[in-house]
């Protein structure tokens, strides 16, 4: 009896280790260790093939005087701020679509469409949309006697043009989060609000939005991550141009490490570390909230 109990106990302490081992090993190998390796590489001068030379914090010192680094950092901030528009825009569309008219399901799917397609396709579509000679945007501007403007060739407009393209799928994502959230709103509270004469904005602000808090939280998390991962669109639409004015940290890092400008792995890694530290603020914020929720359960 006691022997079998002991074996049961062993099995229960061994089982989680066995179940976890493959996933944990894979994840450590490809995700966790590389983070530390990158931090280490950022202290070296390395072309990716030859020997590494230890240079201490030289790469970071160089970053402080790098004009292109500041341009990228500034663009990252613009991305972060403007990407937030996806949240209210998504809520707006969700409210617009939260009806039970014939064919609503299809409408909802079609509005969600941009999120399903690849950012490469989104980038190509918008590059063409902005095209100064044939693009739809300039055709429309032409009707009002304006334009043409080459959005992607203009240092002032280029980043905004790319962000606008990115907002398209991101808004669709936030929309679907809010549609699901709205379905779960307690109808009794709405009726109670109606009895208290709460309407329109008041109802939205005091009764609906508090109940949509989980959806808003997720929308915020995915939008911040989306904004900081803004590599694909920049690479496809402008390759950082014109004259590097639309670079973001994610793209500048890639350019430094792998492009024709030379294989500066150490310098690239230093840029990645900066990006990682910015992201770390959000990861910590998210983990703290999650930890609280777990303890609260």
């Amino acid at each position: 009896m006691s022997a079998s109990r002991a074996s049961r106990f062993n099995q229960r302490s061994l089982a989680p280790v066995l179940f976890l081992a493959p996933a944990v090993l894979f994840f450590l190998f490809y995700v966790i260790f590389p983070i530390f390796q990158s931090i280490q590489i950022s202290l070296y001068d390395w072309d990716g093939l030859g020997p590494k030379t230890y240079v201490g914090v030289d790469n970071y010192v160089e970053l402080m005087d790098d004009e292109a680094f500041y341009t990228s950092l500034k663009n990252n901030v613009i991305w972060l701020v403007l990407y937030m528009l996806a949240i209210p825009a998504g809520l707006f569309i969700a409210l617009f679509l939260n009806q039970t008219v014939f064919g609503m399901r299809l409408y909802k799917s079609l509005f969600f469409f941009p999120f399903v397609i690849s950012q490469v396709v989104v980038g190509l579509v918008f590059t063409w949309f902005y095209d100064p000679s044939y693009g739809l945007l300039n055709v429309i501007l032409g009707w009002f006697g304006m334009g043409p403007i080459a959005i992607l060739g203009d240092e002032t407009w280029v980043t905004y043009g790319i962000i606008f393209a990115g907002l398209w799928p991101q808004t669709a994502y936030c929309m679907i989060l809010y549609i699901t959230g709205l379905n779960a709103v307690d109808p009794e509270q709405i009726e109670a609000g109606r009895l208290d004469n709460a309407k329109g904005w008041k109802m939205l602000w005091y009764i609906i939005l508090p109940q949509l808090k989980p959806a808003t939280f997720i929308a915020l998390v995915v939008t911040v991550i989306g904004a900081l991962r803004s590599f694909d669109l920049v690479s496809i639409m402008t390759a950082g141009g014109p004259w590097g004015s639309s670079r973001v940290l994610a793209y500048y890092m890639y350019e430094k490490a792998f492009s024709e400008y030379g294989f500066r792995m150490g310098y690239g890694a230093a840029i990645a570390v900066v990006l990682f530290l910015i992201m770390m603020i959000y990861i910590t914020f998210f983990l703290v909230k999650m930890y609280r929720d777990e303890k609260g359960l």
């Binding site: 989680p16 996933a23 983070i35 390796q37 990158s38 590599f231 890639y254 490490a257 990006l275 990682f276």
Partner: peptide, 24 residues
């Protein structure tokens, strides 16, 4: 350490790709 392992997965999931790029 169950929470630690769980949080490792969650945190790793949000990491910017660029920090993994050179080593991977």
């Amino acid at each position: 350490g169950d929470m630690l392992v769980f949080f490792m997965f969650v945190a790793g999931n949000f990491v910017p790709f660029q920090i993994l790029m050179v080593p991977v």
